[in-house]
């Protein structure tokens, strides 16, 4: 199982990314009519940054849902969405980012375009990765909870001012097909389109800049990497300290030292780059004694 996974993980990952994006946004009539799906699926959260105003979306965005509940006058805490994060994070960690996020797929595809000289990260990368935690605390939790109007209702600050997924998957297709929405365009749309364009151009140059520096969902799932079912484990005795894992890692993680870094999106490039197979998915790892026994027999 582990060897099969190692050899085919890139093809499997791209296929899963495309299939999951297509399936979770499979309400085709929404794109044709400029409307959104209103069925019971919207009671469930999707794991990735998938705007619930995408015409095809069959589920809800967990970050949007969290802001909606926190920004309502009735609740100060969303057990449902926090529970969803705990459960999904415990099982998948940032596998969600690497395999199940539509905006992650867009950034992956853009980075493949040979347009700019590519670089893994920005100068000051180690400091910049903390911005996503500030975005999470400020725009997803604190402002929706406390910056409320006279009726106790708050704006979804992250969705309104920063989220590129809403503009790309929700705003553009809806506005293209809905005359009423076209009449309502204004300064906010120009701002959101500017944010989206900056991120799309940035993604041509740097690998997944939104995931690395700005995504609150990635910040949340990153906390679960060390305990998730998807966690990696290192066989330190087999590691020859060649650092090929870090060289291959598009998130620029020293995998030999931090195999379950919060920045790891579980793309699997380190698994393939390792010459001694000392990085393993813990769930599928063979105990060394068992390996030796089977090799001897």
């Amino acid at each position: 199982m582990a060897n099969f996974l190692k050899k085919t993980i890139f093809k499997i990952r791209l296929a899963i990314q495309i299939a999951f994006t297509a399936l979770s946004n499979g309400y085709v009539m929404g794109f044709l009519k400029g409307k959104i799906y209103q069925g019971p699926g919207k009671k469930l959260c999707l794991p990735g940054l998938n705007c619930y105003s995408c015409p095809g979306a069959l589920g809800s965005c967990p970050i949007g849902s969290l802001q909606a509940v926190l920004g309502s006058p009735k609740f100060q805490m969303s057990f449902y969405v926090v529970g969803f994060f705990l459960f999904t994070g415990a099982i998948l960690g940032r596998v969600v980012c690497g395999f199940l996020c539509p905006f992650g797929l867009v950034q992956d595809l853009l980075y493949k375009i040979p347009f700019f000289a590519k670089r893994k990260n920005m100068p000051g990368h180690k400091g910049l990765v903390w911005i996503k935690y500030v975005v999470l605390a400020l725009m997803v939790v604190i402002l929706p909870m406390f910056a409320v109007n006279a009726y106790g209702i708050s704006d979804p600050w992250f969705c309104k001012y920063l989220c590129p997924s809403g503009t790309l998957f929700g705003g553009i297709p809806l506005i293209a097909t809905n005359d009423g929405l076209q009449q309502a365009l204004g300064g906010l749309f120009i701002w959101k389109m500017s944010v989206l364009l900056v991120l799309l151009v940035w993604s041509l140059w740097v690998y997944r800049p939104f995931c690395k520096y700005l995504c609150p969902l990635g910040a949340i799932y990153g906390w679960f990497n060390p305990i998730a079912l998807s966690r990696f484990q290192m066989d330190k005795e087999a590691c020859i300290d060649c650092k090929k894992c870090k060289a291959a890692c598009p998130m620029d993680i020293p995998v030999y030292a931090k195999p379950n870094s919060a920045e790891c999106i579980k793309c699997g490039k380190c698994l393939q780059a390792c010459p001694t197979d000392c990085i393993e998915v813990a769930l599928w790892a063979k105990k060394k004694d068992e390996s030796r026994d089977s090799a001897e027999s």
Binding site: C45, Y52, S53, K74, F87, C159
Partner: peptide, 27 residues
């Protein structure tokens, strides 16, 4: 999650998700 469903958080989430979120799309 079960507790969140029991205290009907899902009603707010559903109400938000079935109408076009004007803020999300930049209106």
């Amino acid at each position: 999650m079960v507790f969140g469903v029991w205290r009907e958080e899902i009603v707010i989430l559903y109400q938000k998700a079935i109408y076009i979120c004007m803020e999300c799309i930049g209106i």
